[in-house]
Design a protein around this nucleic acid. Structure first.
Lengths: 188, 188
DNA sequence: ATGAAAATGTACTGATCGGTACACATTAAA
DNA sequence: TTTAATGTGTACCGATCAGTACATTTTCAT
């Protein structure tokens, strides 16, 4: 099944929202940059908010794939995969289009916790944390949920810091701290 | 010297920008909520951007005071102050009006690294990191700058996570991880 | 009290916001 | 080829955006 026009719209809107922000991106800009008419857009999505939600769903799918495939290809052991997830993070941060995390930015622009966009961001982070907790559990960590949450803090911190301060230190620092926490929590 | 009308504007604008976001806050809303006329506002600040920069400067002053006074009152030793800074973080996150970090949100809405608002955010974070590095150095940490940066990652992560996922775990998790890193880096 | 100067409020600007009305082009069944 | 249905583009809607013109009020030295 070739990508439908709707899929195309989601992909391009995702790119533009990620690059320029949500409030800063008007529907007219989307029309101009995607070449898709406004009528068609509003055929696919009733409101701008619905379109934003669709782009976040896609982003969530992309990251679920990245976070499960990436580290799995790098290491066999669960402990190795925990560490490898920080290499994946480093690669992402170093990549050209990196511009912080779309969900962090979404929750910055839609702050009300009951807002669907904010809740989608919470769901995404919850899923990532659970994935880390599963790895931590398999790695034999004493308190896998706590370790997972702490490693997530390092990742969120690295993303935000790389975005604000630059890419130089954030990812390696996160990896160093993660190594300390993982080695201490997971008996060899 | 009583607070001038300009100071009043900065304080109220700070509160509203922090609560609702920058792009989402129009000048008309500021007029309505502050009771200060638009003409007066544009007498004090030539553009909305200038007003935003003024609120961020004030926020920076507030946090510089908070981050130096708070931990200093809680602990004497530099190592104790490093730990105490995470109690200050926890208190802030738990406080009612907490709504993530104004500078993180600012850099989310003004993403271009060369933008004055983005650079102001970078300056703020750099200053906080330097302050942590000074404490780490006095505490005898092996690599004080690296430790400071890692602790900052935990703080940024806790702020973002508390904002997106809720306040339940973020600050205690950050403190637990920080204790591990600090104890390992600072010889007793 | 008076007059000059500063501060203020109202009403407006053109541009852009999210969203829609409607005419036109395209398709496919008959 | 005709007809109905669908898809698309243009031009527009009222609301709001950042910012301004200007008349009016307030302030204060005289």
């Amino acid at each position: 099944m070739r990508p439908s026009r709707k899929d195309e719209l989601i992909d391009k809107a995702l790119e533009i929202f990620y690059r320029d922000g949500f409030h800063a991106t008007g529907m007219d800009k989307l029309v101009h940059e995607t070449g898709i008419s406004k009528t068609s857009m509003y055929k696919y999505f009733a409101t701008k908010e619905d379109l934003i939600l669709a782009t976040l769903e896609r982003r969530h799918e992309q990251f679920t794939a990245l976070l499960t495939e990436g580290p799995a290809a790098r290491a066999d052991s669960p402990k190795g995969q925990l560490m490898a997830s920080f290499d994946t993070l480093q690669e992402w941060i170093a990549s050209e289009g990196f511009n912080s995390c779309m969900f962090i930015k979404a929750s910055s622009e839609f702050q009300d916790p009951s807002h669907p966009i904010h809740q989608m961001a919470a769901m995404h982070k919850r899923a990532l944390t659970e994935h880390m907790a599963n790895l931590a559990r398999k790695a034999g960590a004493k308190e896998p949920e706590a370790l997972a949450r702490q490693l997530m803090l390092l990742k969120e911190g690295a993303i935000v810091t790389a975005h604000i301060q630059g890419k130089a230190f954030a990812a390696p620092d996160a990896k160093d701290a993660a190594r300390t926490l993982i080695n201490l929590a997971c008996p060899e």
